[in-house]
Amino acid sequence: MSGVTKPLNPRGTKYERADFPVFEFPVVGKARYNYTTGEALGRFLAGLKEGKILGTYCSKCGRVFVPPRMYCSYCFREVDGWLEVRDEGVVVTAVMSYISATRARLERPVAVGVIKLDVPGRQFDDHFFPGLMHYICGAAEEDVKSMRIFGAKVKARWKPPEQRTGSITDIECFEVVRP
């Protein structure tokens, strides 16, 4: 079989521009949903509206869940209750985005990351912790690129109460707390 390079003559008709008939199918408005948030996220969103970050906990393993769920993913049992976590924590990872969701260049880059949230009276290691993805404000490009931002303390900057809708965007961003 020497000399043979598989796959033999792979096929496909490439094109750059569709200068032949195609069917352009607009999707706008055709796939609309109204999610039932359920017990866990329904209450979480209501909490955000009131300026609170709520989580659930499992007494068996001691884990705290943010975003909350009504079951413990690890013990497979119903969680034991709700608690309010602090609206502050530390940055576990962060990046600087220069593009939008549609891949257009942004005028100014934005920092986003995962925030490990503080829960009074509880300690968490790096392997499991209550955490949210969100924008990070007050961080310079260099803070992110140098990874100085890792471990930095951040605190939620909330929208004014009258502008909150019960959404993750009721928090504008997590702001770096300067010591």
Binding site: V27, Y35, L41, L45
Partner: peptide, 14 residues
């Protein structure tokens, strides 16, 4: 509780 959350697939077109 916030009972519903809207989702729209906003892809313009296939």
């Amino acid at each position: 509780r916030v009972k519903y959350f809207p989702e729209v697939m906003e892809i313009e077109a296939y």
